[in-house]
C-alpha cells in the first residue's frame, strides 16, 4: 500500500518534471519568434509571441548591429524671455568626463545622447528635409509626433530646466551626423524654431 502511494507520487513528480521541461521549451520558442525578423518566422506565432513577451521578456539583442558609423553631435541655442544663449554643445563636458571616468554616470548620459540622436536620425531620414540649410521646424508638423523628435524635445527642455531653471520660448538646433566610414555621407540639419 505504502509502495503504491510512493509510486503514484513519483509518477506525479515526473509529470511535473515534464511540465517544467515543456514550459522552458515553449518559453524560449516564443522568445525566439519575438526576436526573429518577421519575414523569417510564421506571422501568427510571431504576433502571439509578441504578446507573450510583453512586458517581462522583451528583448532583441541587436547590440551594435548594424555597426554604428555616425558620430552624432548636436548644439543648441536657447531663446528665453529676456535672454538668448550662445551655441552650447551638451555632449562636450559629458564626453570629457566620460573619457576620464568610466564608472560614473557620464557614460549613461553619453549613451543617452547618442541614442537620442540615433532615433532622431531615423525620423529625419524618412522625410525630405533641407540638409545643410536652416529650416523652420514648425513647417514639418509630422515630425512632432515622431519618437526621436519627442526625445529631443524632452532633452532640450530638461537641459534648459537643469542649467537655466527656465523654459525656453524656442530653440535652434544644429545636428551633425558625421559618417566615420564615408565622409560624403555626413549630414547636417539646422532646425530653427524648435519647440
Amino acid at each position: 500500500m505504502r509502495k503504491d502511494t510512493k509510486e503514484i507520487e513519483n509518477k506525479n513528480l515526473l509529470r511535473f518534471g515534464w511540465l517544467a521541461f515543456f514550459f522552458v521549451l515553449v518559453h524560449f520558442i516564443l522568445i525566439l519568434f519575438s526576436i526573429l525578423p518577421q519575414q523569417n518566422s510564421l506571422k501568427q506565432v510571431s504576433n502571439f509571441s509578441k504578446h507573450y513577451v510583453r512586458p517581462f521578456f522583451i528583448q532583441r539583442w541587436s547590440m551594435f548591429a548594424p555597426c554604428p558609423v555616425f558620430e552624432n553631435r548636436f548644439k543648441v541655442k536657447y531663446y528665453f524671455k529676456d535672454d538668448t544663449t550662445s551655441w552650447i554643445d551638451p555632449s562636450l563636458p559629458i564626453l570629457e568626463k566620460h573619457q576620464k571616468y568610466r564608472v560614473t554616470y557620464h557614460g549613461n548620459i553619453a549613451v543617452g545622447q547618442y541614442n537620442m540622436l540615433y532615433w532622431l536620425k531615423m525620423d529625419l531620414d524618412t522625410i525630405d528635409l533641407p540638409i545643410n540649410k536652416p529650416f523652420n521646424f514648425q513647417d514639418y508638423p509630422v515630425l512632432k509626433s515622431k519618437r526621436g523628435c519627442r526625445l529631443l524635445h524632452n532633452y532640450v527642455k530638461g537641459y534648459a530646466r537643469h542649467n537655466y531653471s527656465q523654459k525656453p520660448l524656442k530653440t535652434d538646433i544644429i545636428i551633425d551626423y558625421k559618417n566615420v566610414k564615408d565622409s560624403t555621407l555626413s549630414t547636417r540639419y539646422l532646425l530653427n524654431n524648435f519647440k
Binding site: 526576436i35 548591429a65 548594424p66 555597426c67 554604428p68 558620430e71 566620460h98 566615420v180 566610414k181
Partner: peptide
C-alpha cells in the same frame, strides 16, 4: 542573437566594425 544580427552587417563581416566604432567618441577611448 548578438552574433546573428551582426552577420547581416557588412561592417562586421568585413572585419572593420571595431575600427569604425573606435572613431566614435561616445564609444571609444
Amino acid at each position: 542573437f548578438s552574433t546573428y544580427f551582426k552577420l547581416f552587417d557588412s561592417n562586421w563581416t568585413s572585419g572593420m566594425a571595431l575600427t569604425y566604432v573606435s572613431e566614435i567618441a561616445f564609444y571609444s577611448s
